[in-house]
Amino acid sequence: MERSIRLVPLDEDGFAALTTDVVVPVEQSLAWDDYDRAVPGRRPWKRFACYVDEEPVAVLALSEYLGRGFRYLWAKHGPVWLVEPTPELECALRERLVAGARAVDPRLVFVRLHATHPAEDLHELLQSVTYDRTVIVELGGRTDDEILAGMKKRGRRDLRKGLREQPVDCTEETGLSAEDFTELYEVLRETAERDGFGVHPMGVYTTMLDALGPQHARLFVGRHDGEIQAWVIVTVNDGAATAYYAASTASGRAYDAPTQLYWHIIRTLRDEGALTFDFMGVGSPLAPSLEALTTMKTKFNPEVAEVPPAWDTPVRPFAYAALVKALAAKRATLAGARRAVPAVRRATGREEGAA
């Protein structure tokens, strides 16, 4: 007999009741709604439970994003599965979600959500980086020695060397004003320029800290002789801590300040009852841009965990295809411009030399 699979809207109380016994990522939690409301171009959309016959098998919270002339939904780190998802179950949930989104708001172009099993309706993300591997450190009930024993030999060596030769003063600075965050933002810009990634406007980070509050968003900073060498924003929900944003200076890296800071964070959160610490993504064929982070993150656990990456599922296939084409053209134009700049400089240099 064919089983009934349906999506049922949930209010906050219904969502909380169904997720009592599971770990909910902070982006799927009720607390995330305040952050979505505070960021321009975003808002909480709807929450659903997926039922197979009368059994709830998953819940998901969706946020609506306004792009440049288009709208889409994103269930960050969702669905939250209450059972082990099969390829068929993941596909059935997406089919019902896409049909429902199309019926509720025909302007929506695609839905972004996480999936374990590849499928034809899943497309690589338009303009964001996802990951399918991360490093997770178990904290619950573990002593310092036990956490150290789980680290790579190199990790223990680097930590002890840094603590001995140039110890970093690690403090929590949750509640830092937006004005005082400016100094941290400059460190982030230095990190981004060095490692080749983009940064959000400063307000995205300060709004996150303010909207989520100290219960769900924490700021830790490492200094040496009063100078910032590294900082990390950590989110916490249901005992799961995640290193969400991080930055470090060149001098901080030279003496491995991030390792000392992470060691401080891990022990602090463990003492407060956190059960896990997720470094939020390492390199893989799906996420080669994160490869530079792998060495540092695996110091704390050499075992890499597989996690479901994010995918786009079109709601309006023709509109989505047009976006893909337009974005490819834009990237080609930018790549051509970047190639042209060195050529112009070389030509100018030759002319000046000849003169």
Score class of each variant (00 low, 15 high):
177 S>W: 05
164 R>K: 14
190 E>L: 07
197 F>Y: 10
193 E>D: 14
139 L>T: 04
182 T>K: 09
274 A>E: 12
144 D>V: 12
139 L>S: 03
174 T>A: 08
248 S>Q: 10
277 F>T: 02
187 V>D: 02
247 A>M: 02
224 H>C: 13
169 D>F: 09
255 Y>Q: 14
256 D>Q: 15
182 T>R: 14
222 G>W: 04
190 E>A: 13
239 G>P: 09
209 L>G: 06
163 L>W: 02
163 L>V: 04
165 E>Q: 13
158 D>H: 12
212 L>F: 03
175 G>N: 07
141 G>I: 12
214 P>C: 06
210 D>R: 15
187 V>R: 01
255 Y>D: 14
178 A>I: 05
182 T>D: 15
273 G>H: 04
223 R>Y: 02
231 W>S: 05
221 V>K: 00
234 V>Q: 01
160 R>V: 08
212 L>M: 08
169 D>C: 14
227 E>C: 10
251 S>L: 15
237 N>H: 15
163 L>F: 09
146 E>C: 08
237 N>I: 06
184 L>S: 01
184 L>A: 03
254 A>T: 08
200 H>K: 10
252 G>V: 06
227 E>T: 12
236 V>F: 08
184 L>N: 01
202 M>V: 12
143 T>D: 12
216 H>K: 10
183 E>Q: 11
176 L>M: 15
272 E>P: 02
199 V>Q: 02
228 I>Y: 09
244 Y>I: 12
229 Q>L: 13
246 A>K: 11
275 L>H: 13
142 R>W: 01
152 K>T: 15
248 S>C: 06
165 E>W: 00
157 R>D: 15
175 G>D: 06
258 P>C: 01
265 I>Q: 07
229 Q>D: 11
225 D>F: 00
189 R>E: 15
211 A>L: 05
161 K>T: 14
155 G>N: 03
193 E>T: 09
189 R>Y: 07
156 R>D: 12
246 A>D: 13
258 P>L: 00
230 A>E: 06
271 D>F: 02
220 F>M: 05
274 A>P: 09
259 T>E: 08
201 P>I: 12
236 V>I: 11
146 E>A: 11
272 E>D: 11
266 I>K: 01
243 A>H: 07
183 E>A: 15
248 S>M: 10
257 A>C: 08
276 T>V: 11
238 D>V: 04
160 R>P: 02
271 D>L: 06
253 R>S: 08
221 V>T: 11
217 A>N: 05
161 K>V: 14
223 R>M: 09
167 P>I: 06
232 V>A: 04
248 S>W: 08
204 V>G: 07
164 R>L: 05
274 A>M: 11
162 G>H: 01
241 A>C: 10
276 T>Q: 07
235 T>L: 12
144 D>N: 10
